[in-house]
């Protein structure tokens, strides 16, 4: 998280900015109370719009280069098409699947599984993390157990889940929820545990306790770690989706991977990989936008 600092604490700037304590004369051109922060702050520059689009351009160099390399290598016949089909062939496979009306279904069911599993896991992780992070007793009581469960590689649950829940949506979504739970749990618990004790003491000194202290100080202070936990959990969810769909399913991107492998359709296989990458990046970007918004306020 390398957000550019909006604060410049250099002495010169501060003395310039520091208004005189004598308030009898309001600064010229400033209507008291009518000034919104960022517009007049010399220390909070708004990032020029050109910079961001330039960033996007620079970020596109490597993917486009890879694509070109891929095309060149396949055009030169270095690999057999069954080993590495050309980008054009992969595109064609995509178009074909769309025309047959199959791709939409794969995408929709996979996205749905990820969102439901992530939602369940994240909410449970948030609740558990809050309980363990806020209460020392709960930490002592539950911490070691949750830690032990966390130590089990989550894919090890697969046989048990299938045994208990049979093959179906329930077991798939449960697996994804397990994958999403732990990152959220861990970051929320440690985020709340490490809330600046000075701020908590201020809360006490100003008469805040219990739920009011939680709502006004502890939760807001932990927001950055909650968000980064969510981000990790979402990435985990896609990982576990593929695991769940590889093992047993008749639809979804993981199924497309397996099915293409069995039929020797490397073009579709690559298509599924590219789509997983794009979807993962897309959902991550959504959380990224939320994160940036929040951190602008929080940092």
């Amino acid at each position: 998280m390398s957000t550019p600092t909006t604060t410049d604490r250099s002495d010169d700037l501060l003395t310039q900015q520091d208004p005189p304590i004598d308030t009898t004369l309001p600064a010229a051109g400033v209507t008291p109370g009518g000034v919104t922060g960022a517009a007049t702050t010399p220390t909070a520059p708004s990032r020029p719009r050109g910079l961001r689009s330039r960033r996007t351009l620079v970020g596109a160099i490597v993917p486009l280069g890879l694509l070109a390399l891929w095309q060149a290598v396949t055009a030169a016949g270095v690999f057999l098409p069954v080993q590495l089909p050309s980008p054009v062939a992969v595109w064609g496979a995509g178009v074909e699947l769309v025309e047959r009306g199959e791709l939409g279904g794969h995408l929709a069911i996979s996205t749905q599984r990820v969102l439901i599993g992530f939602g369940i896991g994240a909410v449970l992780g948030l609740v558990m993390g809050a309980v363990v992070g806020l209460s020392r007793q709960a930490d002592v009581l539950l911490g070691p157990t949750v830690g032990a469960f966390r130590a089990v590689p989550s894919l090890a649950w697969v046989p048990l889940l299938i045994l208990w829940m049979q093959i179906g949506e329930t077991s798939r979504i449960t697996l994804i929820a397990i994958g999403a739970f732990f990152p959220v749990y861990t970051t929320v618990a440690s985020g709340l545990r490490h809330v600046d004790q000075h701020l908590v003491e201020v809360g006490h000194a100003y008469g805040l306790r219990g739920p009011r202290l939680l709502a006004r100080i502890q939760l807001p202070a932990a927001v950055p770690s909650v968000i980064s936990g969510m981000r990790l959990a979402l990435a985990q969810s896609w990982l576990f989706l593929v695991a769940a769909e590889l093992i047993a399913s008749s639809q979804g991107l993981g199924f497309l991977l397996l099915d293409s492998q069995n039929n020797g359709r490397t073009d579709r296989l690559l298509l599924a990989i590219v789509l997983l990458g794009l979807l993962g990046k897309l959902t991550d970007a959504v959380i990224g936008v939320v994160e940036r918004r929040l951190l602008r306020v929080w940092a």
């Binding site: 208004p19 109370g33 000034v35």
Partner: peptide
């Protein structure tokens, strides 16, 4: 709150956040 912002001479900084001001402020 307005009265106190006036009292400590920070009325025009009311919408700033702590990260944007100096230690004295």
């Amino acid at each position: 709150v307005d009265e106190l912002l006036d009292l400590v001479g920070l009325a025009e900084f009311r919408s700033h956040r702590p990260g944007q001001i100096s230690g004295g402020m």
